[in-house]
Computed example of a mutant assay.
Amino acid sequence: MMVPVLAATGGSARSSTAALLACGLAERGETVLVDLARRWVSPWPMWVDAATSEPGGIADVPPSQPVTTRQVRDAAVTVQAGPAPWQVLTDRQAWQAPPLDVPEDAAAWHQLVAVGGWQCAVVDTHWAVGEDLALAAHRAGPSVTQRWTGLPCVVPVWCATATGPGVDRLMAALAAAEEAGLPVQDSVVALTHTADGRLPAPVRAACALLADRVARLVEVPFLPRLRSHGPLPTEELGKKGAAAAEDISSAVLGTARDRYGSPLPNAAIPDPV
């Protein structure tokens, strides 16, 4: 199962939502978190390096040549956040190293995950969905978002902060996605609280509208240590974080079963090269 974590803009709690998803899904099966962002803007290299000295990194996957399951697995770093371990594929090179020449095509990443043999891949994306869809509308070919949401056995998760501006951008992005024919009705929305207490009135109104447009809506509680320190090690999650991981992963699994049946179909097997 592929779970691309999407957002209308930066600062939407995308990486922390992806971390909670990986924590929760790892209890159900072997899970990898795929970090698509460049290392200069991604929190994952820092989070992983702070938690383990284990070697590994996406740079260890040989480019433009056949790879084995062992090579892909060795490039992923095993971390412990939540009851079960999971793995992270991210760029852990030194800051001065040249940028990696990684594929942009979602199908290439899907095949890499299949070669690695994971049952679930949580994909921490980096682009602004609204901009991506708008650009695609004025050029030939599908958008990046459309390629990811068109993969086999996929459940998109849309993130936003539980604020007036956050839900405004989310609603605009979802409207653009519906216009482009993306499976919004088979998606999960995760709204992250930015403080303790009741949701603002505009956010409550947006939740009422979203209930009929998406498969499931999950509220993620205010978890300041997760946002500032990341999910590693385990104690950074706390009881609220563990409950949030359970809620959002259950929403994703429930949506997948509604769409694809239960049990879920077997993962695709890449063609030999």
Rank of each mutant, 00 (worst) to 15 (best):
A108D: 15
W109F: 11
W109E: 08
W109G: 11
W109M: 08
H110V: 02
H110I: 00
H110S: 15
H110K: 05
Q111R: 15
Q111T: 12
V113P: 03
V113S: 11
A114S: 15
V115A: 08
V115N: 09
G116I: 10
G117K: 10
G117W: 06
G117A: 09
G117D: 11
Q119D: 14
C120I: 11
C120Y: 07
A121N: 09
V122L: 05
V123H: 10
V123W: 11
V123C: 12
V123F: 09
D124W: 05
T125Y: 08
H126T: 13
H126A: 15
H126L: 12
H126C: 14
W127P: 05
A128R: 13
A128M: 07
V129S: 13
V129F: 05
G130C: 05
G130T: 14
D132K: 05
D132P: 12
D132L: 06
L133A: 12
A134C: 06
A134Y: 10
L135G: 05
L135P: 00
L135S: 13
L135M: 13
A136I: 07
A137Y: 03
A137F: 02
H138I: 09
R139C: 11
R139N: 08
A140D: 14
A140W: 04
G141Y: 04
G141I: 07
G141A: 06
P142T: 12
S143W: 05
S143K: 09
V144K: 06
V144H: 07
T145W: 01
R147L: 07
R147T: 12
R147A: 14
W148D: 01
T149E: 00
T149K: 00
T149H: 00
G150F: 03
G150V: 03
G150W: 02
L151D: 01
V154L: 01
V154W: 00
V154D: 00
V154H: 00
V155L: 01
V155R: 00
P156F: 03
P156C: 04
P156E: 02
V157N: 02
V157I: 01
V157H: 03
W158K: 01
W158T: 02
C159L: 02
C159V: 10
A160I: 02
A160Y: 02
A160F: 04
A160G: 03
A160P: 03
A160W: 02
A160E: 03
A160H: 04
T161L: 15
T161H: 09
T161R: 15
T163R: 08
T163E: 15
T163N: 11
T163D: 10
G164L: 14
P165F: 08
G166N: 08
G166Q: 06
G166D: 12
V167G: 04
D168G: 06
D168P: 00
D168A: 15
R169L: 14
R169S: 14
R169H: 12
L170Q: 11
M171D: 14
M171S: 13
M171A: 15
A172L: 15
A173T: 15
A173V: 14
L174F: 08
L174N: 13
A175F: 03
A175N: 13
A175C: 04
A176P: 01
E179G: 08
A180N: 09
G181I: 10
G181D: 12
L182P: 06
L182T: 11
P183V: 04
P183K: 03
